[in-house]
Structure formats: structure tokens, C-alpha cells
């Protein structure tokens, strides 16, 4: 077993875990950071979305050992106006996908700012693309919400983005 140093929400942690432990299990079971959720454990739902150096990833398919030198941010380390917007726009019901939706939205806003296109973005343009609701929906499609709170989530993100 290897001693693994991971940096989560600005703090360093030493973990004694074998390489098959995912970043998700490392967070939830070894660091007690249960805000990041396990919905499928196979990259098909987005509930485990966290930020690695500000980029959104699925923690379930990330081996913790592969992300040892990255700065990981989970919902517990986030303080962002989008959280309050989710509450106001009722962008959740059961709350299980919510951490992932919020982390994903923050990563998405940064991607958009950096000029990352999406499947619904047209030709490259000098001014950059407007973050329309259609863009938000496509860019957030990696985060399932079975309660169907999509309407409120898109409203919440749109409000923060514009």
C-alpha cells in the first residue's frame, strides 16, 4: 500500500490506500467528504463531479493515485453564488445530484469563459459565444437529475452566468 498525498479543498491529506481506490471513494470513505455522491460508479451520471485544478471530472473513474498532484475541490470547498441560486430557483429536489450539478456548473462557466465550444456551438467567433440556455443544457448534459429539476438548474446557472 502506498502513502498517497492528496490535496482537497486546500488541505493536504495523507492516505494509506491501494491504487484501485477511486478518487470518489477516497473522498467519501477515507476523508469523510460525503458531499460528493456516488450514483453509478461508471461515469454515466455525473453525481461525483468534482473540480481538479478547476476542471470538472468524474471522480468515480479517476483513480485517486492518478490525481495525487492535483488540487481537488469538492462541494464542501465551494462558496459560490450559484449555490444560493440553486435554492432560489429550486434547482434540485432530493439533493443527490446537486453537489455534482454545482461543481459541474462552476467548471462549465470557466470552460465557457475560456472559449471551450460545445456540440451546439457554431463556427468559432472572435467575440466568443453567448451562453444561451441551449448551450447550458448541452454543456450540463453530463449531470443527470432523475427528479427532473433541469428547469430550475438552467435558470439558476443562467442567472449567475448573465
Amino acid at each position: 500500500m502506498a502513502e498517497l498525498r492528496v490535496r482537497v479543498n486546500g488541505a493536504d491529506h495523507l492516505l494509506d490506500i491501494p491504487p484501485q481506490v477511486s478518487l470518489l471513494d477516497a473522498l467519501r470513505e477515507h476523508l469523510g467528504l460525503t458531499g460528493t455522491k456516488k450514483g453509478c460508479d461508471q461515469g454515466a451520471c455525473g453525481a461525483c463531479t468534482v473540480l481538479a485544478d478547476g476542471e470538472r471530472i468524474n471522480a468515480c473513474l479517476a483513480l485517486a493515485v492518478q490525481y495525487a498532484d492535483r488540487e481537488i475541490t469538492t462541494i464542501e470547498g465551494i462558496d459560490h453564488p450559484i449555490q444560493e441560486a440553486f435554492v432560489r430557483h429550486d434547482g434540485f429536489q432530493c439533493g443527490y445530484c446537486t453537489s455534482g450539478q454545482i461543481c459541474s456548473a462552476i467548471g462549465m462557466l470557466a470552460e465557457h469563459k475560456d472559449g471551450m465550444p460545445s456540440a451546439v456551438t457554431g463556427e468559432p467567433s472572435a467575440e466568443g459565444e453567448e451562453l444561451t440556455d441551449e448551450e447550458i443544457r448541452e454543456r450540463m448534459s453530463g449531470n443527470l437529475c432523475r427528479c427532473g429539476a433541469y428547469h430550475g438548474i438552467v435558470e439558476a446557472i443562467g442567472e449567475v452566468a448573465r
Binding site: 461515469g43 455525473g46 463531479t49 481538479a52 476542471e55 470538472r56 471530472i57 468524474n58 473513474l61 479517476a62 459541474s104 467548471g107 462549465m108 470552460e111 475560456d114 472559449g115 471551450m116 465550444p117 460545445s118 456540440a119 456551438t121 463556427e123 468559432p124 454543456r139 448534459s141 453530463g142 449531470n143
Partner: peptide
């Protein structure tokens, strides 16, 4: 997202963006 890919080979950019999710594409 690469500018040369987007302008010279838009099909490549589109193919990637139509696959998986943003999280998986980041990985």
C-alpha cells in the same frame, strides 16, 4: 477547443464534442 482543429478540421472538434460528457472529455 484547439483553434487550428476548429478551423481546419471542424469535423474533429464536433466529433469529440458529441461524445460522452464534458467531465469525461476533460479526463
Amino acid at each position: 477547443a484547439h483553434p487550428l482543429v476548429r478551423t481546419r478540421y471542424p469535423v474533429v472538434s464536433q466529433a469529440v464534442l458529441n461524445g460522452a460528457s464534458a467531465q469525461l472529455r476533460n479526463m
